[in-house]
Simulated scan of single mutants.
Amino acid sequence: METPIGPLLVAATDEGLVNVGFRADEATVRRAVATMGRRLGGEPVEDAARLAPVTEQMEAYFAGSLKEFSLDLDWSLTTGFNRRVLRELAAGVPYGTVVGYQDLADRVGEPGAARAVGTAMGANPIPLVVPCHRVVESGGGIGGFGGGLEIKRTLLALEGVLPAPLF
């Protein structure tokens, strides 16, 4: 899927959206699809109808007209602590807001786990929809981002958290 932040790989199962991948060039897509096939136990099939709600909502998000995704999600590519943190992020950090790594750790009852929250963000299989770009350093820094800091800044600017990049 072509977007203002570059090509994205979007993948869904019968349960819902299972993966969003940044910088989806041909080699990246091939590797991601093979990995998903192994982890999910099946051969991927291209199905535009299944992905239509995803692409429609992502297009609306990038156009600025969608503030909250309403997609079924398949959480099967994440487990344990990471899943708990990502579910809290999805449910509790709305469009146009940010949360610190430490605050998110506190919210899931693990006050000493700010670094582990960072690891969970880096392992998020459904970025954008599960908005790991909204997690920042408690001291005011932007923090890291698996898609790259330029994409994180662009997404935060789209949501009105940061000023739009000058160039």
Rank of each mutant, 00 (worst) to 15 (best):
G64R: 10
T97N: 06
P94Y: 05
G41L: 04
L128R: 00
E137F: 14
V20S: 02
V117Y: 03
M36Q: 09
L128D: 01
A114D: 01
P111T: 06
M121R: 01
D74L: 07
E15K: 14
R84M: 12
H133P: 08
G41M: 07
G80Y: 12
V20G: 02
V98K: 07
K67G: 05
D47G: 03
V130C: 07
G118Y: 05
L66V: 03
E26C: 01
D74H: 13
V18M: 00
V20Y: 05
D106H: 00
L73K: 02
E88D: 11
A27Q: 14
L17K: 09
T78F: 01
T55E: 14
V135Y: 06
L104A: 03
S138H: 07
R83S: 13
G100C: 12
R23T: 00
G96D: 08
A24H: 09
A27R: 15
V45G: 04
M36S: 05
L66C: 04
R50V: 14
I126C: 03
R39G: 03
T79W: 07
S76Y: 01
R38L: 11
E59F: 12
V136I: 13
F69Q: 03
R134A: 03
R87Q: 15
G122D: 08
R87G: 12
H133S: 03
N124T: 08
E88N: 09
A48K: 10
P127K: 05
S138D: 07
G100A: 15
T78H: 00
R38E: 13
N19F: 15
N124H: 12
V129L: 04
V45W: 03
V117H: 07
D103Y: 08
V99Q: 01
P111N: 04
P131V: 09
